[in-house]
Design a protein around this nucleic acid. Structure first.
Lengths: 152, 152
DNA sequence: CTAGGTTCTAGAGTCGGCTCTAGGGCAAGC
DNA sequence: GCTTGCCCTAGAGCCGACTCTAGAACCTAG
């Protein structure tokens, strides 16, 4: 049964996914689409709802920092069909760890930023009370625990 | 009193900050250093401990996604000295919001990724029980609540 | 004296991820 | 018939943030 679940134009897919039409064509060249996009009259792309769903997943993966080559890898595995599930799972787990690490890093950065915001708030509220306002102003002298935020 | 708090070479600063010497020179050109780096014999850079502290802050800001131009802006304000505190605070607050938004986005991405990991784990554990494993495998059919993750 | 390591400058190159341009096709409405 | 709007391809361009190169100076140890 040749599915006729009303195909979508590239513009419609752009709307639905938040990607630009340029990016959609780019992603296609990059092999990020699970199944080859169909073509209508005039070689125009015809996307299915499944394509849109897949792209939405790709958007999530990108938004969480997965590089395009890895998305392509995952796409390839899915295209290859069953037998590749272990590898897909491994890939997803790795990415999950990656996201958790990112969040961790951000949390640590946030602490320092919040601390500095606090310092400035105090400073502006009850006037520049302390005399320790040297040339580089108050930024120095925050505690020094920002280890392991981003080596190299 | 001309501080002689034992100056550091670019290589030592690289070690201490986790930045490469290339990046240190690059950052200097980009105006990311609060005070101009001193020079020793042979025009070699001499950094102070304060410079290192400042760079560590910059590393944190970068790691949390602040673009270099904004770091430069902040640096400029600090260089200008007192009177710019409100603006610095505003900048930091804006960045703080930005970081929170990032974390929020990541959290939402994480949910979906975790969900998919779960699906694959089930699938691999009690065999491919369900018959709904279509061409694009099991990826489709996750619930559809990933609104607002990354519009455009 | 020489060799090795670090540093210098100016500028070129790289990489990821888009983003845009040029030049053209086709279909619908005025 | 002509304009408008969406689409096509191939390929160039851009942006941010580094990263590296070439060619030279200096310093220390052997």
């Amino acid at each position: 049964m040749p599915k006729a679940e009303q195909d979508l134009s590239i513009g419609q897919v752009a709307e639905r996914t938040g990607l630009s039409v340029h990016t959609l064509r780019f992603y296609e060249r990059e092999g990020v689409l699970a199944n080859p996009v169909g073509r209508g009259p005039g070689r125009r792309r015809l996307y299915s709802e499944d394509d849109v769903e897949w792209l939405r997943l790709c958007v999530i993966l990108r938004a969480s920092g997965m590089p395009l080559p890895e998305i392509r890898r995952y796409t390839d595995l899915v295209r290859q069909g069953s037998g590749t599930e272990e590898e897909r799972l491994a890939l997803l787990r790795r990415h999950r760890e990656h996201v958790l690490a990112q969040m961790d890093k951000l949390t640590r950065c946030l602490d320092l930023i919040t601390f500095k915001v606090g310092v400035y708030e105090d400073h502006l509220e009850h006037g520049p009370a302390e005399q320790g306002c040297d040339a580089s102003s108050l930024p120095e002298r925050q505690e020094q625990d920002q280890r392991g935020v981003s080596p190299r």
